[in-house]
């Protein structure tokens, strides 16, 4: 059993009459990558800020490596935490290198890291240019470089691929993959769900301030039990398909120009496929599991 990097115990946060986070309990394991998803206003950002000690919980407590997230003891721990905020803003007057040096000084880590990190993020050519001339993607890279200062053990990444082009997104996940090898704990939020579903060990779904669901993508899939989709291409009348599947409860069956789309629940899938394979004139068959988007929408609905 892995030990806990972060323990969230019955944490709530109210802003006046609004309860932004409502009784959330969650353990995040050492070295795991956890995806935090939910609609805007679901309480993700508030939970993020509480984990970083930026706002105190109204009730409950948060421990990072066994330490409360405020006070003098947490200050030392902050050096081991990297944070990439969703709305990045830098000092426009400073160059990229100066920006990193400023944060490196605050974090108490070596200045020599700065240039190395700029290189790693592909910004070495812009190191001595002022940030006000940076594109959105360059700012995001600079933000990621900043989060990696001091080789953090825990990384908080809020919408980290915002504004990155496809190449940038791939590079970002390559670096994240390297970090995971070294046992870094990563908490990541993203609106682009298909992007993170392959890259997180577990997902935490938030809805109306509550932790709505928690588990691996597979577990959530089974829990929600959404229909899967089977797509066929075959010659001859689609009525043959209907006949062949008689007795299996289907969610839907649509046919058009030799293409048939069938949706059915998970528990009937093997029986369905057996009968379909026995059909004559079957040219092609594909099975699509519900995507993270589907799961997410299933939960949020």
């Amino acid at each position: 059993m892995a030990s806990n990097a972060i323990e969230i115990r019955e944490v709530s946060r109210r802003f006046g009459p609004v309860c932004a986070v409502d009784g959330v309990s969650l353990d995040i394991f050492e070295g795991e990558t956890l995806g935090l998803i939910g609609h805007n206003g679901a309480g993700k950002s508030t939970l993020f800020k509480m984990m970083l000690g930026l706002i105190p919980p109204s009730s409950g407590q948060i421990l990072i490596q066994g330490t409360q997230v405020h006070g003098a003891a947490f200050r030392a721990l902050r050096r081991a935490i990297g944070y990439l905020p969703e709305n990045l803003a830098f000092y426009e007057n400073l160059t990229g290198l100066e920006t990193l040096r400023f944060f490196a000084r605050l974090k108490g880590c070596g200045q020599e890291q700065c240039m190395a990190l700029l290189k790693k993020l592909g910004l070495e050519h812009a190191a001595n240019r002022r940030v006000d001339g940076y594109s959105k993607g360059m700012r995001q890279r600079l933000g990621f470089a900043q989060a990696l200062l001091g080789s953090p053990r825990i990384l908080f990444l809020d919408e980290p691929t915002n504004g990155l082009d496809p190449e940038g997104i791939r590079e970002f996940y390559d670096i994240l993959g390297e970090l995971k090898q070294t046992g870094v704990t990563v908490i990541i939020t993203s609106h682009i769900l298909f992007e993170i579903q392959e890259r997180v060990q577990r997902l935490a779904v938030m809805k109306s301030g509550k932790l709505h669901a928690l588990g691996t993508v597979q577990q959530l899939r089974e829990e929600v039990n959404l229909p899967l989709t089977v797509h066929l291409r075959l010659s001859g009348s689609p009525q043959r398909v209907r006949d062949a599947l008689a007795g299996i409860p289907l969610e839907s069956l649509e046919a058009q120009d030799g293409h048939v789309m069938i949706r059915c629940m998970h528990q009937h899938r093997m029986e369905l496929l057996r009968r379909l394979y026995a059909l004559e004139g079957l040219d092609d068959i594909t099975v699509r599991e519900p995507s993270l988007e589907d799961i997410f929408l299933g939960y949020a609905a």
Binding site: K49, L52, R75, R78, I81, L88, A89, F90, Y91, L106
Partner: peptide, 14 residues
């Protein structure tokens, strides 16, 4: 307002 305060305060600075 710019959004840089959160990042600053996540640093080891009071």
């Amino acid at each position: 307002e710019r959004g840089s305060l959160d990042l600053l305060l996540s640093m080891p600075i009071t």
